[in-house]
Amino acid sequence: MSSLNLKTIDRVGTISKKDFIQQYVKPQIPVVIERLTEDWPAYEKWHLNYIKEVAGEKIVPLYDDRPVRAEDGFNEAHAKMKMSDYIDLMEREPTNYRIFLYNLMKEVPAIQNDYKWPDIGLRLVKQMPMLFFGGENSKVFMHFDIDYSNILHFHFHGEKQCVIFPPDQTPFMYKIPHSLISREDIDFDHPDFEKFPALKQAQGYICNLKHGEMLYMPEGYWHYMKYLTPGFSMSLRSFPKNPKFLIKAAYNLLIMRHYDNYKRKTKGQAWIDEKNERAITETHKNLGIL
């Protein structure tokens, strides 16, 4: 990852509520808190064998890294299989298959008692958190969340790499118009600076998360995740406090996603291709890159 301009994210073992707010939330700087989950039942229990034991018979939606196509439904799964078979696959060999935004806690209510709402100074949205699973070397494309929330991202079982960029780096990210993602053909592990020269100007952060560690991602941060080993994660969120991001979140939820879905239905793949081309031409035009 040395080709991208990335700083290592700060790490602390524990931190007081006051210091977390003053040093990281107010200035909107990411941090890894290593021991926030040590008093959770999940810290001891949340490994893949436990998930297989309590949820092995559940049929789960799987996603891979294929590019978005017009014919794909919104968040439509690419495959489905029993959780036990998926975990067997992950432990047997590398796989691109991931589980994305899966409401396992609704499917298996017993695990709702395995985590605690951290008293860390953020007013967290008290909705049932979703879980994310990935096999070795599976990747989550570069994107930012539709609601611009502050994110507490907890990882369990194994190791995961996180590359993140502040929202003020958006001009360099080759953002797809009317969407929340960068161009999907950018390899953020080995970026092609000849094709995507704006990335050379982007200033970001990197960390590896191990079992039980939490990454705080401030409002609207871009994030790209790679599972270095099989594992899974959970996110808790707090709505943005910046009025600009609240307005953008409302626009994304109420207007942007509906407009994009309409254009997909009416223009088909031509709309996807047009947006991908505009991500390059508009980025380079705005930055004065020939």
Rank of each mutant, 00 (worst) to 15 (best):
M1E: 09
L4P: 02
R11I: 06
T14Q: 10
S16E: 09
K18Q: 15
D19S: 11
Y24G: 00
V25Y: 08
P27L: 02
E38I: 12
Y43M: 10
E44R: 11
E44I: 04
W46F: 11
H47W: 00
L48H: 01
K58F: 02
R69F: 07
K80L: 13
D85E: 15
Y86R: 08
I87W: 05
D88R: 06
L89H: 07
Y102C: 07
K106C: 12
N113G: 14
G121E: 08
L122P: 02
Q127I: 15
M130E: 14
S138G: 07
I146K: 07
Y148S: 03
F154W: 03
P166W: 08
T170A: 12
T170W: 02
S179E: 14
S179F: 14
S182M: 12
E184S: 11
D187S: 04
F188A: 01
K195G: 12
F196C: 02
P197M: 10
C207W: 06
K210L: 08
L215T: 04
Y216R: 03
M217V: 12
E219D: 11
K226A: 11
P230Y: 04
G231I: 06
F232G: 09
R237W: 13
P240N: 03
N242E: 15
N242W: 00
K244N: 14
K248P: 01
N252C: 02
I255C: 05
N261V: 05
Y262R: 07
T266D: 03
G268S: 09
G268W: 05
N276D: 05
A279D: 04
E282L: 13
H284G: 05
H284K: 13
L287D: 03
